[in-house]
Structures are given as C-alpha cells and as structure tokens.
Simulated assay, not measured.
Amino acid sequence: MTQPEEVSALVAELRPLLTQLAELLPEQVADAARGSTQHHKVTGSPAPWHPEAGPVLLTIHAGVRELEQDLRYHVAGHTGAARGGSDANTSAALDAIERLAHGVPDDVARDAARRLGRWIEQARQVRDVGESERWIPIHVPKAQIPPACPYCRTYSLRVAQESGRVRCANPRCTDERGERPSGRIDKNQINGDAMLIWQDGRTIYYSPREAS
C-alpha cells in the first residue's frame, strides 16, 4: 500500500468515528470512568456535553484543518483559506487531505498517516465508542502468502488482535451489498484449519492450523 493509499484508508476509518463521537454529545455521562450514559434529565446540568467525546472531537476537528493546511502548503506554497467549524467543513477538509496526499513527498504523507492514526486511536479510546483495537496483517506461516481479500483481490486484510475481527484496509473495497467488508477469524472444528468468515456468509480457508 502506498502512502497516499494509507492516508485514504485512515480517512475512511476516521469518518464513522467522528459520527459516533458527535452522536455522544447530547448524552450526559453518569460515570466518566466507566463510560456509561444516563438517559434521565440531570437537574441543573449545563448544556449537554460528553466529557470524553467532546474534547476528542474538538481536537480532531481542529487537527484535520491544520493537517489540510500543512499538506496544501507543501503542494501549493500556501495554506489556503481557513475553513469554518462545521461538520461539513471537516468532511471537506478530509476530502482535501486525501487528494493532497498524492502530491506531497512520502515522508510528509507518512506524517499525515501518523496523525490520522493517532486521532483514530483517541476516538476509539472513548469508552462509549469502545473500539480501541490494534489492527495488524493476518499471520501466516513463514514463506506463505497471506489470504487476499475476496472482494477486491488485494492483500489488504487486517485483523484486530483483541477480538479477531477482520476487515479490508483498501478504502475502495466493498462487498456485494456495497458495504465495507467485515468478518472474523475462526477455526474449523474438524481439522483446525483457519477460516475467514465474512458478514455476508462467505467463508475462506487459509493456512491450516495457523489462525491469528
């Protein structure tokens, strides 16, 4: 995967997390340490605010705009006009980041990917989002080729170490329903072969007895 492709994949990961964070803002958190929400009205409470999601969301909104300006400066020699604070402007900035990543040196695109990855991790660490997982390539025995994605035929599959969930890192990949492919790793109960079981029911066998 090239650096611009990695940036696009990370932008695709970040977008739904921003939506989840925004959806948390009308909720009052009963216990920030546990991340649980209370749905009854809090007497005398200030404007609705989620003490974990709110600051993270603001950090990402500001950071996305700063990243767009940094990339634009490398491409065009200027930062461009400042964007407003709306969600639509954040989405437009993410669109621009994907485009601009194709016009900057690899080290600059690599830094952009690092910043996007950091925001993704911060969002997933919010308890009511609760998706903090490390995604790594699928393990196969030495000298063997990892399984290709059955939908886009690229070697872009990643597995979450904690849960065994599987997804394709190719941002343009969709399944037959037009959705981002998702599945899980399991083992055949008869012979121990590793299997990828996809959400649409498709099953793929790979690397006998070597599930991650």
Rank of each mutant, 00 (worst) to 15 (best):
Ser212Thr: 12
Leu58Pro: 00
Thr43Lys: 14
Arg134Gln: 13
Arg172Gly: 12
Thr154Arg: 13
Gln144Pro: 01
Arg172Trp: 09
Ser132Asn: 07
Trp198Arg: 10
Ala82Ser: 10
Ala9Ser: 15
Ser8Phe: 04
Gly201Tyr: 05
Glu131Ser: 10
Asp31Thr: 09
Leu17Val: 06
Pro4His: 01
Ser207Asn: 08
Val7Asp: 10
Ser86Cys: 00
Glu27Thr: 02
Ala148Arg: 05
Gly164Ile: 14
Gln122Cys: 06
Arg115Pro: 03
Asn191Val: 07
Glu27Ile: 04
His50Pro: 02
Ala76Lys: 02
His78Ile: 02
Glu6Val: 15
Pro208Arg: 03
Cys173Phe: 10
Gly77Thr: 07
Ala96His: 05
Asp87His: 04
Pro171Trp: 08
Arg167Met: 11
Thr43Gly: 05
Ala112Val: 11
Ala47Trp: 09
Ala113Val: 10
Tyr206Gly: 01
Ala148Asp: 12
Ile97Asn: 04
Ala76Thr: 10
Glu176Asp: 15
Asp193His: 12
Leu25Asn: 04
Arg184Thr: 14
Glu66Arg: 13
Ser45Trp: 12
Pro16Phe: 02
Leu100Gln: 11
Leu71Phe: 09
Asn188His: 14
Pro137Ala: 07
His102Trp: 05
Glu176Thr: 13
Ala169Thr: 06
Arg167Ile: 08
Ala47Arg: 15
Glu6Phe: 04
Pro181Asn: 12
Gly183Ser: 09
Arg177Cys: 11
Ser132Gln: 03
Ile120Ser: 03
Arg134Glu: 13
Ala92Met: 09
Glu121Asp: 13
Arg15Phe: 07
His102Glu: 10
Asp128Thr: 11
Gly77Cys: 07
Leu10Tyr: 05
Ser86His: 06
Val126Ser: 06
Ser207Pro: 01
Leu24Met: 09
Thr174Arg: 14
Asn188Val: 05
Ser132Phe: 09
Arg99Asp: 14
Leu24Tyr: 09
Gln161Cys: 02
Gly77His: 07
Pro141Asp: 08
Ala123His: 05
Arg115Phe: 03
Ile120Asp: 00
Cys168Pro: 10
Gln161Gly: 07
Asp186Gly: 08
Glu162Gly: 04
Ala211Val: 09
Ile120Lys: 08
Asp200Ala: 06
Cys168Thr: 15
Thr37Lys: 00
Glu176Tyr: 03
Lys187Glu: 13
Arg110Glu: 14
Gln161Leu: 13
Leu71Trp: 13
Thr79Trp: 03
Gln125Asp: 12
Leu10Asp: 02
Leu58Val: 05
Leu10Gln: 08
Ala12Asp: 14
Tyr155Pro: 00
Ser36Asp: 15
Tyr73Gly: 01
Asn191Phe: 12
Ala123Gln: 07
Arg165Lys: 15
Ala33Gly: 12
Ala30Ser: 11
Glu121His: 13
Thr203Gln: 11
Pro55Phe: 03
Pro146Leu: 05
Gly85Arg: 07
Glu52Lys: 05
Lys187Tyr: 02
Gly130Trp: 03
Gly117Asn: 13
His40Thr: 14
Ala22Gln: 02
Pro141Ser: 10
Ala53Ser: 06
Gly84Tyr: 01
Gln199Asp: 14
